[in-house]
Amino acid sequence: MPQLLANAIVTSAIYVLVGLSFSLIYTTSRFFNFAHAGYIVVAPYVAYFLARNLGAGWLLAFVTGAIAGALTAIALDAFIFQLLVGRQSPSTAPLLASLGLFVVIQATIALVFGAASLSFGLGEGSIYEVLGARLTGVQGATIIAAIVGAAMVWLFLQRSTRGKLIRAVGCDRELAIAYGIDPVKVSLMATGVGAAMAGIVGCLSAADIGLTPTAGFQLLLGGVVAMVIGGVGSTPGLLLGAILVAAVEHGAQWWFSSAWDRLILFGILLLFLLFRPAGILGRSSRAASV
């Protein structure tokens, strides 16, 4: 039982980080960015390449990977999404483009690295006993990263000038422009920070359970379900949502079989979308409906 709890905490830590990175970008760009699944896996693949083929240390590889992922995201945002948003094209245009990019990134990675699961060989290194549960070093780092990450993002958005810029553009793009804020610059900054976070969580998860080209998609699903259930734009809501999602996933695996966890998860998401689209802590139910 303590082991089950520990596993659920690690999973929810991952979903918190994914959800935070996604919602940072979502705040300013306001569309469902499927390419985020790509941002999550670009970093660990770059890190894997650096560490395995060039002999870099894992920490250096992870940091470089996260930076590479952030630069990829910024480039895509600058040359594709911002143009579509600025052009006043139909609201679905950026979403469709992101679907295309998601497919492109996934296929490119599969072409270069193959579709097989890659192992970083870091999971078995050190095992700690905490309150009767066994955690690897990577899992411990994930939990710490989630706590620090959530606190830092909350402080960044609430206290720092740059964070306030992001919230201003997210609240009302037109008004932000009237106050002399360049929404494109702010969006690019949010994308950079969000994608770097996505890269870090991608590396952590890859070091824990291995890496496939579709891993980003699986992680993004959990993170987004947590975000929608908790309430889009609310950091405490995201924490709550991530814990709920992880509890459902591990609970389902414990009591039924691992085959049904996704089904139950998406069933819950559908129920939330139908009856409370704003999520548990969301401000207004009008946010999600027409």
């Binding site: 594709i80 245009a93 469709l96 295309g100 497919v103 492109v104 296929a107 490119t108």
Partner: peptide, 13 residues
Amino acid sequence: QLLYGVALVGIVM
């Protein structure tokens, strides 16, 4: 997959 992804992005753009 690569082709249709690129085509999708290109057409939208």
